[in-house]
């Protein structure tokens, strides 16, 4: 079942947090709402769930208007940032909670709970207390709980925040594998570009309460519709001629090769897979270049940069089109 948002607007007093948002979430597709703090992404998620009432607009589940329905009648699966598991219930009690409050019989509840725990690769965990679970296990229990009552849509609020980088990277992969198996529309909120790119089929960029752009991760990264959209997804360099390019699109120009820009190097950082060289263009605008090899570059030096090309491409056909606004 698809979920559609029509002209959703939210005002808190005189402050407009969301403005005329139109979106459609399709069954089986994972959509990431990506934006900085205060862009309205969690408010949007809460309006879908019914936790926040819209000032204007409609939420449709299929063809049914659920805007006026109370939270408990919406049939929404929500995985909260803190997972919000019930500490007084064991894993099975948590997963079966939605069925319990719907009056589903004990036997059916147990069957469904076991099915959901198997789905999230936690078979036999039903009797475990919540405090004995690891962060990843808690997250999977929260997902199983949200899915147990077969919701019309699954919402995830910052599912990987507050985790250390190593665990975050591992859970990302686990979560991606889990979400790929779902048939309901899934919406996740994040301010982390990597989370959005790895987990989502579609990215919706939100900025100051409005949708800036939406599309496949690569499309919005490679073809941003504005400088704001470009910068929301990572660093971007402003080049002469009011053009933008990504740091990884720059390379050192060989002697005799025409340079796109000459940078006065300020800092050289080794980041493992590449070097990050930062400095300034002659007009003073900041430049960031991610280079495969920057040995020999030193602060204070002038570095001639060109656009990187893929093997077999001519130098005037860069791998990435320059973003021009």
């Amino acid at each position: 079942m698809d979920v559609t948002l029509e002209g959703l607007t939210k005002r808190f007093g005189i402050q407009e947090v969301l403005r005329d948002v139109d979106l459609q979430f399709i069954g089986g597709e994972v959509t990431a709402l990506l934006g900085p703090s205060g862009s309205g992404k969690t408010t949007l998620l809460n309006m879908i769930a019914g936790l926040v009432a819209p000032s204007k607009g409609r939420v449709l589940m299929g063809s049914r208007d659920v805007t006026a329905l109370p939270i408990e009648a919406r049939n929404v699966g929500y995985v909260f940032q803190s997972h919000a598991l019930f500490p007084h219930l064991d894993v099975a009690g948590n997963v079966g909670f939605a069925l319990r409050v719907r009056g589903v019989g004990r036997r059916e509840r147990r069957r469904r709970t076991e099915e959901m725990l198997s789905f999230v690769d936690l078979p036999g965990f039903g009797v475990r207390a919540i405090e004995t679970l690891s962060g990843g296990q808690r997250q999977r229990v929260a997902i199983a709980r949200a899915l147990a009552a077969e919701p019309a849509i699954l919402l995830l609020d910052e599912p990987l925040s507050a985790l250390d980088p190593e665990l975050r990277a591992r859970l990302r992969q686990e979560l991606r594998a889990l979400l790929e198996r779902l048939r309901v529309p899934t919406v996740l909120v994040t301010h982390d570009r990597d989370d959005a790119f790895i987990l989502a089929d579609r990215v919706v960029l939100l900025h100051q309460g409005s949708i800036l752009q939406q599309g496949a991760p690569e499309k919005v990264y490679r073809h941003p519709v504005s400088e704001e959209a470009a910068r929301l997804l990572g660093a971007a360099n402003r080049l002469p001629g009011n053009k933008l390019c990504r740091p990884e699109d720059l390379a050192i120009a060989a002697a005799g090769e025409q340079a796109l820009v000459t940078m006065q190097v300020e800092r050289v950082l080794f980041l493992g897979a590449h070097w990050r060289v930062t400095g300034r263009a002659p007009d003073g605008s900041p430049i960031i270049a991610d280079l495969a090899d920057a040995q020999g570059c030193a602060p204070g030096e002038a570095l001639r940069l060109r656009l990187r090309v893929s093997p077999g491409q001519a130098a005037d056909q860069p791998r990435v089109p320059i973003l021009q606004f």
Binding site: E72, Y78, A84, L85, A98, V101, A149
Partner: peptide
């Protein structure tokens, strides 16, 4: 009490 726990119960269908 974690307010998200209360919200979670409502979202899961609790009256």
């Amino acid at each position: 009490l974690d307010p998200q726990v209360l919200a979670a119960a409502r979202v899961l269908g609790a009256t």
